[in-house]
Amino acid sequence: MKKLILKRLLHLIPMLIGMSFVSFIIIQSSPGDYFAQMKMNPEISPETIQQMRTSFGLDKPVIVQYFYWLKNLVRFDFGVSFAYHIPVRTLIKFRLKNTLCLAIFSLFLSWLIAIPLAVLAGYKENSFTDRFLSMLAYISISLPSFFVALLFVYFISKTAVLPLGGTRSIFDINAGTFVIFADYMKHLLVPGIVLCFVNTGWIFRLMRNNFVETFNNPYILAAWARGLPARSVIFKHTLRNAMNPMFTILGMEIGTILNGAALTEIICGWPGMGSLILEAVLSHDLYLVMGSLVISSFLLIIGNLIGDILIAFFDPRIRIT
């Protein structure tokens, strides 16, 4: 197990280097000389420019610049945002927290809904329940996240049952931690439900198909032949085996949910990574774009790693070879 994790971690190194290099290339090929543009900007002090010049080697050849940039990257230093005039790291830290809260909240919610329904549908394969739930899943899969988000925003704007936009509406410094947390969760609800709505269909479908496939496996037949009760065959044997590939999916989802989250954040006004990179692209704030790209891919890599570790943990065929 330890060896396996170590192997996966070693495998990450070339991936990270490749990822950072591609990110660097993308930003370098963007039009315009940003260093010059920065110098022209009266709002940026000469000290900041001097500091960036030395730490990022901005007057050196491009390939040397990459290594400067990589060195800073290892220390999570992404430079200074042109638009905000504060370090990119500070900006990302704040936004990343929100995005992760949103992603984890909606992942948790959608898995909580999808898995039991999928087991129900899979167990009653081809029944009315199965067909009905599968149809709902089709609808959920085919609804683009931005459309659901817009529909929700429309609904909320008409009914005003939940707060929309931002992360808090209580700005009283004396407010207790719990009150602030509850307020935060209330704001999280709209983007969270939207994202969950879109995600649940995928998880349902994958899990339902896994369940049906597992349920037809010889070892399930053998479990029945042993005289096991239905409860044990369904939940102990079929569910455990059907859940196995889902751990990989869970890992992958940590990365892919960022895509859906980005548009949802932008439409629902949730200040996360998605809206950050959009603002950065619109204002041509290149260091911020680069920082967001690197961090989001880093999350995806971490997600895949978690998926690999989870499946190794739950599947003895991978854990013990």
Partner: peptide, 22 residues
């Protein structure tokens, strides 16, 4: 390896970054 590296980027972020190149 090239394919793996491309697949490491969340597509929305990659899409916006590529758009920023122009």
């Amino acid at each position: 390896r090239l394919v793996e590296i491309l697949m490491v980027f969340p597509s929305f972020y990659l899409m916006l970054s590529l758009r920023a190149m122009f």
